[in-house]
Structure formats: C-alpha cells, structure tokens
Design a binder for these strands. Structure first.
Lengths: 127, 127
DNA sequence: TCTTGACCTTCCAGTTGCTGGAAAGTCTAT
DNA sequence: ATAGACTTTCCAGCAACTGGAAGGTCAAGA
C-alpha cells in the first residue's frame, strides 16, 4: 500500500507519516521504484500513533507506548504509569487554563469596549 | 539599568528580553560599552509583556496590545476584541483537554497496572 | 598592577511536531 | 506523446524561547 492510501487509512497526513519514518517510528518496506510500501503491521502502528497523539501523548511517549504495544510480555503497570503521568499533566494544564480564563473573563467583562480610550484590560496589564 | 536588573525587575529571563529586542518589542538604549540600558519606559513595557504572556497572549497579540498600550487614543473596543478572541480560544482548549482527560481517566482506571501483559490502555490505542 | 569572577555582547544551534515548497523521478490514462 | 497525479529527497520555517560558545568589560581584592 502506498503512502497516500496509508494516509487515508490512518487519518495521518502523508507528510506526517514520512516524518514518523524519519524519527524511526514506522519504517515501511520499499518497492523497486523506491516508493514506500505499507503492510498491515505498519498500518496498525500508524493507527496506533494517530490515536495516541490524538490523546495528547508526546511523540516520545508514543515511541515508548509503541514499543510496549509490540512487546507481548509488557507489564500493564508500565503502560499505566505513562498514562497516569500524562493524565496528571493534563489536569495541571486544565487547572492553569481555568485560572487564566477566570482572570481574563473578569477583565473582559469590566471593559465596556467602546470608542473611549479607558480600558481596564490595558490598565491591568500595565499595573 | 542593565539587563540583569531589568530581568529581576520584570520577572523575565535576560535571554527572553534579548529575544524581545530581536523581534522588535522593546529596544533599549545602549551605553558607550555596548551594554543595553533600560529606562523606566522600557521596564514598563517589559512588565506589560511578562503579564500579558502570563495570561497566555501570543507574542503577536502582545505586539498589538503593546501598541494599544502606547496609544493614548486607542478605543477600548480594540483591546476587548483581542482579549475576547483569546478567551474563546482558552475555553476551546479547556473543553478539549477535559474531554481528553475523561477518556484517559477511564482508560487508566480500567487498567489494573500489574505484571501481567493484558492492558486496556494499549488495547484501546490499538483498536 | 594583576587577576579572578561576574557580568555583558553576538551568533549559532536546538527544542516540538510537524508543514510547505522546490526539484526531480514515476506511473497511468488518453 | 503527453498530461496530471502520484512519488521521492531535501531544505526552510513556524512559536517562543533556551543553551552554549567565544570573546569583551568591569569591579573588587591581593
């Protein structure tokens, strides 16, 4: 299967698939003409990657998860640890964004937003 | 005032302050020896930047906000518009992260995390 | 006066995860 | 034969810094 079909199948752009090969995540075979040739196993890995990236795992996390995915003797604890760390990080980001939103929301509400120059948002930033 | 004092005053790393000069945000005068020399006005702008960046505004947003900050005749509506757009973007990110967290949290809970290879997290990623 | 150490300068490279584009080769259909 | 839709590689760029190297400057102490 060539790269554009692999892209359609996995939901990843062809450019991204080539990039994943560059960084050693999925290396398909090659045809006589030099074209990449994806087999079922490659496709599984690409789908795995697109899903894991969609869940916000870093590419380096994905590399580890992929190797665990390939390892029939992995311990589920290893996977859980990565996922848990990621979960905590996501929760930290949510909290940070919420506090940001609260501050910003207050500022936006306090600004009447008309032609006059007086602006509580700018005043706050400058304080 | 030299760069390390400006850094201490504004809460920005010296490296970042030099970077802001590179991209044309804050350009201090220079002493005879070539050292940067920050005056009160520069410091105000640096503080403004660190606060606006802390609120998650992009550097390009900051550039506009800074020019509005400098403009005594700005309309508060202009500022409010930028802040509102940013607020919406933050809310979008929060919602995205929350949905991510819910999915990931379910996965983590369903994985017993022991020595055995069976792992619902990997299974889900591979599905 | 010399030296040490803490500053300062510029410039270049690397980070993350792609994405766009150029130049050139290949395949398929008309 | 030729058009156009693929494919390849390589190089550059995005955001917003950050680290490090190589070298200049300055203030304090022996």
């Amino acid at each position: 299967m060539n790269i554009s079909d692999a892209a359609a199948d996995s939901g990843l752009p062809a450019k991204t698939i080539r990039y994943y090969e560059d960084i050693g995540l999925v290396s398909p075979g090659r045809l006589a003409n030099g074209y990449r040739d994806y087999d079922e196993h490659d496709l599984h890995k690409l789908r795995f990657l697109q899903r894991a990236r969609g869940l916000g795992f870093s590419v380096e996390d994905c590399r580890v998860l992929l190797s665990l995915y390939e390892d029939r003797n992995r311990a589920s604890a290893d996977v859980k640890k990565i996922a848990k760390t990621h979960l905590i990080e996501i929760e930290r980001k949510i909290a940070e964004l919420q506090s940001l939103r609260d501050t910003l929301s207050d500022l936006v509400q306090s600004c009447h937003g008309d032609d006059r120059p007086n602006c509580p948002i700018i005043n706050d930033l400058a304080r």
